[in-house]
Design a protein around this nucleic acid. Structure first.
Length: 573
RNA sequence: GCGUCCGUAGCUCAGCUGGAUAGAGCACGGGACUUCUAAUCCUGAGGCCGCAGGUUCGACUCCUGCCGGACGCGCCA
């Protein structure tokens, strides 16, 4: 339990006393929070409890705050409790609290901030789910990193987590893939196939797939009708693409627990089963869609289709689950897939590209309908990444085939840099990625800045390795500024809880930047005045205390980077 | 036309699910290097939080309507 939670308990006791003497009614303080104050000069902790309670108690907030503050001031760990502003209570804690926190951080190590185990079914995070038709390109990076980091964050917060990849291995696109590899297969058999026709996948990565097929089947399917080879070629091509994708993801250190197949889902009759359930509840009906808004396509004609009543859940129109040719729409199978996922999960999270924003409502509606609201689907949209090199926009043309692959990016700037950079903005805002900027060693580059803080800590630890430091370190030798850094580091458990609840892994990156800045500031005192350097060879007790502090900060940096999937640098050169 | 997201300092962005005087970095002005790696740090200036209403003790945050930008739209995947 971290400091904020501990004082929420202390606060609850104080409120209980007020309830007991009839000042306020029970339960009224449910939304009261203990948080770090906006301004550190206000103290260590702040609470809005009096503002929240004032209404129910029909009391003046400041007056109520004063009464609560008086009780809190009696607490042994509270140095001062002051009322400020409209009725906030600012608490200043005794230094021993923060000294103890250093010891706690060091004792808990990599588990500092880890949430208590949440019982029940796992939280499912589905991410990447790129069509298995080619290698991962740079556009997939962000969703991959955000999804993986979010999964790690949720796991660190105490949830069991399943990382899942949904393979779209049943649609028209994988048929196109099969045709594309058939061409490569013929080429591998020595045929001159000329230019790749429009509409097929032109990438060279299909050459080895064609060769493998030639080795397996000889010329058996060279002139055979498509109906004979489509299925086996598709299966093998998809398997090959998935191997390639797994390899690409491994470059980023990403590994999914489960790969679900759309084809398998259809073969098992899952979409029909989902349809039957929803029909029984009147949520699927046969109807005619209104014409699309705006300019009417010339080929539009009204048709009766099986429609899911997504309008009942806030969607604009009801959505077809099957096409007029009887095949499932993407949504039709996706609905069944989510029903299946929901049955083995406590909550669902999907990481989607922002270009799918238009389909969020219908799928969230479908999950609500199919689980009767028991499992919530949270679709997190990830905006596109704009590539730059030295400030110049990077032109990518899919047609010309010069798109940047994920492997290219990782090879050029490194896995840790890619991972960190992808988390330096809210996922729903666009992100600029400059190949030169992200490897620059300067203050503007947050990756470097955080690594540098950690490397400095390691550096000073190496330097002090030979000193006979007293154990335990006399942490009461630390001054106000030093304890200030501990106060920031002590926010880590809270950052974990809040980032997990908001499903926003980027908050870790911002926390790290703040923590690194605080440490650099402390370090720089030593450059201005040698008496503030961490290592004081003529005062080993003080050195021990300062190194304990540095060790605690380093530990939190490592842990937080670890949740982001980034390895802290031991040194920089 | 409709939907989703975005709009906060000159630029790039945070803002902790409604709280105090809205914060960082860059750039700009002033300062600190025979270093525990100064690859850094200190300091100053810089804001109708897109606009207008509403909800409330209190709004950058929630609601409504506009304005501007990005993305999307149909039996696509």
């Amino acid at each position: 339990m971290d400091i904020f939670q501990r004082f929420e308990a202390v606060l609850a006791d104080a409120i209980a006393e007020l309830v007991a003497d009839g000042t306020v009614t029970a339960g009224a303080g449910a939304t009261a929070v203990v948080e770090p104050p906006r301004d550190a000069t206000h103290g260590d902790l702040a609470t809005n409890v009096a503002l929240v309670l004032a209404k129910a108690a029909k009391a003046n907030p400041r007056e109520l705050a004063t009464r609560i503050a008086m009780r809190l001031a009696c607490h042994e760990l509270v140095e001062a409790a002051e009322v400020a502003g409209p009725g906030f209570i600012n608490l200043r804690l005794v230094p021993a609290v923060w000294q103890a926190e250093i010891a706690a951080i060091r004792a808990t190590g990599a588990d500092y901030g880890r949430g208590e185990t949440v019982p029940g079914l796992p939280v499912n995070v589905e991410f990447v789910s790129a069509n298995p038709t080619g290698p991962m390109h740079v556009g997939h990076c962000r969703g991959a990193v955000v999804g993986d980091a979010l999964a790690s964050l949720l796991a660190f917060a105490g949830n069991s987590v399943v990382r899942e990849y949904y393979m779209n291995d049943a649609g028209a696109q994988v048929d196109v893939l099969a045709r594309s590899v058939h061409l490569r297969y013929r080429a591998a058999l020595g045929e001159d196939i000329g230019a790749i026709p429009e509409g097929l996948y032109p990438g060279d990565y299909l050459v080895p797939v064609g060769q493998a097929l030639a080795a397996e089947f000889g010329d058996r399917y060279r002139a055979a009708p498509e109906s004979e080879w489509l299925v086996p070629f598709r299966d093998r091509a998809v398997a090959a693409m998935m191997d390639m994708i797994r390899g690409d993801l491994a470059l980023l250190g990403i590994r999914h627990d489960l790969f679900s197949s759309e084809a398998a889902l259809q073969a098992a009759g899952a979409p029909a089963a989902a349809e039957a359930r929803l029909r029984a509840e009147g949520l699927i009906y046969d109807g005619v869609l209104p014409p699309p808004k705006g300019e009417l396509p010339d080929d539009w004609e009204p048709l009766e289709l099986p429609l899911f009543r997504s309008t009942r859940f806030g969607d604009d129109i009801d959505r077809p689950i099957r096409k007029s040719n009887g095949q499932w729409t993407y949504f039709g199978t996706d609905m069944a897939y989510h029903a299946e996922k929901a049955s083995r999960s406590s909550a669902l999270v999907n990481i989607w590209g922002a270009d799918h924003a238009g389909t969020v409502k219908r799928i969230e509606a479908a999950v609500e309908a199919l689980t009767h609201g028991a499992v919530r689907l949270d679709v997190r949209l990830v905006q596109m990444v704009r590539l730059f090199r030295n400030g110049e926009p990077f032109k990518m043309s899919k047609r010309a085939g010069n798109f940047v692959t994920l492997a290219d990016v990782v090879r050029e700037v490194g896995r840790d840099v890619v991972r960190f950079m992808m988390l330096t903005k809210r996922s729903e805002a666009m992100l600029d990625f400059d190949f030169a900027g992200v490897v620059e060693q300067s203050r503007e580059n947050p990756v470097f800045y955080v690594h540098y803080a950690h490397a400095r800590i390691r550096s000073v630890q190496r330097r002090a390795a030979g000193l006979a430091l007293p154990v335990p370190a006399p942490l009461d030798r630390l001054d106000e500024a030093e304890l200030g850094v501990v106060k920031l580091a002590a926010q880590w458990p809270r950052v974990v809880r809040q980032a997990a609840a908001a499903r926003e892994p980027h908050r870790i990156a911002f926390f790290l930047a703040d923590l690194a800045a605080a440490f650099h500031t402390l370090w720089n005192r030593g450059n201005d005045d040698a008496a503030f350097r961490l290592v004081q060879e003529d005062d080993l007790p003080l050195t021990a205390a300062r190194l304990a502090l540095a060790d605690a900060v380093g530990s939190v940096i490592r842990t937080a980077l670890g949740v982001m999937g980034v390895v802290a640098a031991e040194e920089l050169r």
